[in-house]
Amino acid sequence: MDPLSITASVIAIATLASKVCTIFGELRSLSKSLPGRLAAVNNEVADLEVVLYDVASLVEKRAALPGNKQSPLWHLLKQAKRKLGELELFMTHLRVSCRDARHPLLSANILRKDQGSLKSLQEDIRSIKCNLNILLGESNP
């Protein structure tokens, strides 16, 4: 896979991360009492976005990262896209619930019910981010 294709894929995934962060901002404006877990997940996503742009920049400067379909980079990018997609669906559902809820307790109940899956998404995103950082470190002389 050529560096331009990798760069385009990385930027598309970083854009998805940015979209998730935007949804979080909308949630924060709808509800002032969001749980700390959501803020922690948002921080992980924002950090992942920065790492993704670093990867894109490195690939653009030089084809130092492996680009074939079996490379660790490609696998991590697919994971990031899938996990961010799951998180986007969750956050969108929560935003609609917060916006349409007549009672704030309904949104709180949704959050309480989904704490496990939210924690799992946070851990998966953190793992992807750390692995991308390792790849970045290995590619820098």
Rank of each mutant, 00 (worst) to 15 (best):
R82T: 10
V50Y: 09
D100G: 06
S127E: 11
L4G: 08
Q122S: 15
A56E: 03
A40Y: 13
P72M: 04
T15D: 12
G36Q: 12
N43P: 03
V45P: 02
E88S: 13
L87Q: 09
R37D: 10
S117E: 11
N131D: 14
L48P: 02
S71G: 07
A39Q: 14
T7D: 09
I6R: 04
K113C: 05
D47I: 02
R102D: 05
V10E: 00
M1Q: 09
H75L: 09
K113R: 13
L94R: 00
P104K: 08
L76I: 07
G85A: 07
G116W: 02
S107T: 04
E49K: 08
C21N: 15
A64T: 01
L106D: 01
A80P: 05
L73N: 04
L4S: 14
A56G: 10
P72T: 07
A39L: 12
K129Q: 15
S9P: 06
N42F: 04
F24E: 04
R112E: 07
K113P: 01
E138A: 11
K19C: 10
L27R: 03
E60C: 11
L52V: 05
R62E: 14
P141R: 12
V55T: 01
E44L: 07
S29M: 12
L132C: 01
L121H: 10
N42P: 06
S9F: 09
N42C: 12
A63C: 09
A56N: 01
S33D: 08
S139V: 05
A63R: 09
A80E: 04
R99T: 08
H75G: 08
L105W: 00
L76T: 06
L87F: 07
L135W: 05
R82N: 05
T7L: 14
E123L: 15
E86V: 10
I11Q: 06
K83Y: 15
H103E: 07
P35H: 00
V20W: 07
M91I: 03
L121K: 06
A101L: 08
L89D: 03
H103N: 14
T92Q: 10
A8E: 13
L94D: 00
L94S: 00
C130A: 15
L106G: 01
A63D: 15
A80D: 01
I134V: 15
A80S: 14
T22A: 09
R102A: 05
N42A: 10
K119G: 08
E86T: 08
E138R: 10
K61H: 08
Y53S: 10
K78F: 06
N131V: 08
Q115G: 01
L118H: 00
S18P: 02
Y53F: 11
R99H: 11
E88F: 11
V20G: 02
L52P: 00
P72N: 08
N133K: 13
V51L: 04
T15Q: 09
Q122M: 14
I6A: 10
G67E: 08
N140R: 14
A12M: 04
K61F: 08
Q70M: 05
V50H: 08
L38H: 00
Q70D: 11
A108V: 01
V51H: 02
K119D: 07
A46P: 03
R95D: 07
T15N: 06
T92K: 11
F24I: 05
V20D: 15
H75K: 14
P104N: 03
N68L: 07
E44D: 14
I6H: 03
I134L: 13
P66F: 15
